[in-house]
C-alpha cells in the first residue's frame, strides 16, 4: 500500500515509517501538520493517510479537520485517524462524511502490530474501524440509555464488535458463538434500532452511526 503519515511527534513518525516499511508498505510522505497533509495527499494520491488529531499550530483538532477535508477531496482515500484520546464527537464528525474506509484508533493500538496492520488493510478495503474505546464510551453514555435499553447484553457485545469493524465470523469467533446465532443477533439489533433492510454492510455502519449521532 502507498501510505502518507501526518504526525508531529518525530519519534512516532519515524517509528511508524519503520513499522510500515518493514511490512512491505510504501510510505510516500511523512509530514507534521494538517496543511502539509493536504498538500502531500494532493501530490502523491496515496491509498491511506494515517493522521494524528493534535498537531501544530493549534494543537487541538488540526489533524481531524485536515482528515475530513482530504476525504472530501479524495473520496477513495482511506483515512486512519489516531490519537491519544478518544472523543466521541470527533468520531461522529469523521463518520459524518461517510463511513467507507475510515478508522479511528487510539495511538497505543499500534503496539499490537498485527492488529494495527490488519486495521489498515480493512480500511484500505473500504471497511470502518472504530477503537473499542469509542464503543465503550458510547455504551456508557447515559443519554443513549433508552435506545440501548432495548438491546440485550449479548446484543450489545455484538454491536460493540460490529462497531470495531469485525465481520460476523470474527464476532462469532470472539464470542464463542456459532455463525448462525451471530447473524440472528445482528438481525435483532437492526430490528430494535429500526434500521430498514438494505445492503448488509451498509446497515452495519448505520447501526454504529446510530449511536454516534446525537
Amino acid at each position: 500500500m502507498r501510505i502518507v503519515i501526518a504526525e508531529d511527534a518525530v519519534v512516532l513518525r519515524d517509528g511508524l515509517r519503520l513499522l510500515l516499511a518493514s511490512r512491505g508498505h510504501e510510505v510516500v510522505a511523512a509530514v507534521g501538520d494538517g496543511e502539509a497533509l493536504r498538500a502531500c495527499v494532493d501530490e502523491h494520491r496515496p491509498d491511506i493517510a494515517v493522521v494524528d488529531v493534535r498537531m501544530p499550530p493549534s494543537h487541538t483538532d488540526e489533524g481531524l479537520r485536515a482528515a475530513i477535508q482530504v476525504r472530501r477531496d479524495h473520496p477513495d482515500l482511506g483515512v486512519l485517524v489516531f490519537s491519544q484520546y478518544i472523543e466521541t464527537r470527533y468520531a461522529a464528525q469523521l463518520l459524518a462524511g461517510g463511513a467507507r474506509g475510515v478508522g479511528y484508533l487510539l495511538k497505543e493500538r499500534v503496539a499490537d502490530v498485527r492488529d494495527f496492520l490488519a486495521a489498515l488493510d480493512r480500511i484500505a478495503a473500504g471497511e470502518t474501524v472504530l477503537d473499542p474505546e469509542v464503543v465503550t464510551q458510547l455504551m456508557g453514555a447515559s443519554r443513549r440509555g433508552d435506545a440501548l435499553g432495548a438491546l440485550t447484553a449479548r446484543e450489545r457485545e455484538v454491536l460493540a464488535l460490529m462497531a470495531e469493524g469485525r465481520s460476523n465470523s470474527a464476532i462469532a469467533e470472539a464470542l464463542f458463538l456459532s455463525y448462525g446465532s451471530v447473524e440472528k443477533h445482528v438481525t435483532q439489533i437492526f430490528t430494535k434500532l429500526g434500521l430498514p433492510p438494505s445492503d448488509g454492510d451498509h446497515r452495519r455502519v448505520l447501526a454504529v452511526l446510530h449511536y454516534l449521532q446525537a
Binding site: 511527534a9 512516532l12 495511538k107 503496539a111
Partner: peptide
C-alpha cells in the same frame, strides 16, 4: 506518551 507509544510499537515489532 508519544515516546511510550513508539517504545510499545518497537517491542510489538520485536515480538
Amino acid at each position: 506518551a508519544a515516546r511510550l507509544v513508539a517504545l510499545a510499537m518497537r517491542l510489538g515489532m520485536a515480538q
